[in-house]
Nucleic acid binder design. Structure first.
Lengths: 168, 168
DNA sequence: GACCTTCCGTTACACGATATCATGACGGTC
DNA sequence: GACCGTCATGATATCGTGTAACGGAAGGTC
């Protein structure tokens, strides 16, 4: 597997405690940098999202927290998700109404990623798509359309699953 | 306004009886060409979608049909929508969970359009995006990702609304 | 402490989508 | 005509996604 593929598509369930703790730490830094509060609830929601490489729905997060004894209302999940989105530590998959943790953390570069979502294992990868977003912007300008938000999402098979390596 | 802009963004509510009848006729031909049946219900659902340039949700279609005395269950609307999608006479906006009539009818060319959705008036325009989809395909190949479905959607202001010409 | 802002809990609800099973409409075949 | 297969529709229920509104709690600032 190429480097880019390995980076974009790690095994979806390899949840490593140390890795997760590190991700939480980085998320905390993102919140601090933006003068947002990384509250207990937001951290718990983030941990559920970051615990998997797959995308996860709001009610799935709710269920997993409930399993751990934390019972919250849907609206609370969504509020936490809003904060996490604003902080930039998670992304939203429009085509699936689901969320996943941002692994690139390259907001500084300003280069926007596009999302590759595996239909088999659910893993979501991000690859640089700045040139594509640029082209979309040009297409909008050509139509005299004032673009504000752009979505680019691809569904298919990740390298692991395409090779038959994904879980059945 | 440029030609491309005028074509992509007519006034969202200018529902012309003759134009609609023509659209229904073309839709019927599409169904025939694909050996699908353009049934009464499918035609009614199509008319509601094609009556506006804006995107429209399934339950909005349901409500409008109910206003006209046709009371159907949600599942029936969705089945009709599925058929219309398969025939290619409507498109689905993933980012809004809504549907709109295809105005380009250029399936023959095989060039895929991208969707420009106005946040103010709701109008959805289509412009050629084949080169963008090509690039996305290349990006996927670079990540060893086997792409199957691609979504590209843009939200913003259509020329009319950006110029202050849209309804408030 | 008093104040303000932000976050969270609770309830209820709107909207989007599907599962399941039953009925109807049509064409072909014997 | 009787039978059968296929597809479209109807009816009911349920699930998934997302938000409104209101009040209370937690944490900063003076």
């Amino acid at each position: 597997m190429s480097d880019v593929a390995r980076i974009a598509f790690p095994p979806p369930d390899k949840t490593n405690g140390k890795r997760l703790a590190k991700a939480v730490e980085r998320a905390g830094e993102e919140f601090a940098a933006k003068n947002l509060r990384f509250t207990k609830l937001r951290q718990m929601v983030y941990e559920e999202i970051a615990a998997t490489y797959a995308s996860i729905g709001a009610y799935e997060i709710l269920a997993r927290l409930a399993d751990k004894g934390t019972r919250v209302a849907p609206i609370s999940i969504y509020r936490a998700i809003d904060a996490l989105l604003e902080a930039g530590v998670i992304h939203r998959l429009e085509s699936k109404n689901a969320f996943f943790a941002c692994r690139r953390m390259d907001h500084r570069t300003g280069r926007r990623p596009l999302f590759l979502s595996c239909e088999k294992c659910g893993a979501v990868g991000e690859v640089d798509g700045q040139h594509i977003f640029d082209l979309i912007g040009e297409a909008a300008v050509g139509a005299k359309f004032q673009a504000r938000v752009k979505f680019v999402e691809v569904q298919g098979l990740c390298p692991r699953c395409a090779a038959g390596g994904g879980k059945e």
